[in-house]
Design a protein around this nucleic acid. Sequence first.
DNA 1: AATAATTCCAAGCGGATCAGTAGGATTTAT
DNA 2: ATAAATCCTACTGATCCGCTTGGAATTATT
Lengths: 149, 149
Amino acid sequence: MKLSTKGRYGLRAIVDLAVNQQQGPVSISSIAARQSLSENYLEQLMSRLKKAELVRSVRGAQGGYVLQRDPEKISVGDVLRALEGDITPVACIGIDGMEGGCSSAHTCVTKYVWQRINESVNDTVNHIFLDTLIHESREKQSEKIECPI
Amino acid sequence: MKLSTKGRYGLRAIVDLAVNQQQGPVSISSIAARQSLSENYLEQLMSRLKKAELVRSVRGAQGGYVLQRDPEKISVGDVLRALEGDITPVACIGIDGMEGGCSSAHTCVTKYVWQRINESVNDTVNHIFLDTLIHESREKQSEKIECPI
DNA sequence: AATAATTCCAAGCGGATCAGTAGGATTTAT
DNA sequence: ATAAATCCTACTGATCCGCTTGGAATTATT
């Protein structure tokens, strides 16, 4: 029931990107440095975010990535689904139609449970947007700077 | 973000157990047969449920397992935690105190997200109890029997 | 035009975890 | 005494995770 590093690192990365994109495209190397992530691995995560049309890339020197939508229009759910592929708790909920090859889908008692879990997770991640995380990030950053020690 | 087969099979198993315990202890072999599970594997799952004091075992011939509490007092959360060990979405939420060894816990922006996901999953699984699933199972069973074909 | 900075792409790889097997020891109803 | 059951531990094959490697393509800067 754990989120993989794709989701964990990737969300941190896109928040970092959102916070730092004022001065133009944000490079993988700068995100990796600030967030202590492997550049090569992060590259693969950005590729997923791009494929999901959450970010846009600028190639060549001084290139990098920019958000493709306003932060208030990108939900954590969008980001996690782009990174993890499918965040349903069991396979039979995720795939439409074939129900994950489960032969007893219509008599399956526990399916009710998995659906409820799935709904509650979706409700949560679909209603947290990047702008909220950005604001929180800015506050924490200033806390850091104002630290008396 | 997937539940392992421990949680999936185990919940099915304990519901099966609850439905069939009227005539005395329910054996692993009978659960395995009804639910199409490996006996040896199921044995390991029952061992976890026993360690968590959700079921009680009766050894020897005609032995098996019985629920240790009333079905309305066993939540799906109890069962899943017994089987999966820890159903928090990321490690830093689960372990008290040390926060999973994360050095930047107090400045971590995404932690807010993981906490919200964790709360919503817990809210869901802690409020579904076995008696609900038992009733549903009985209904589906009778549907099956009444099937015209 | 050359260089350096960058994204893009595909393949490989060690380690961990999962799902299940195997084999036997112990308990107990019949 | 036997058979039916739980109990316990160790092993194993497969899969996935997290990450690395190596290079090709693009483009701003000099």
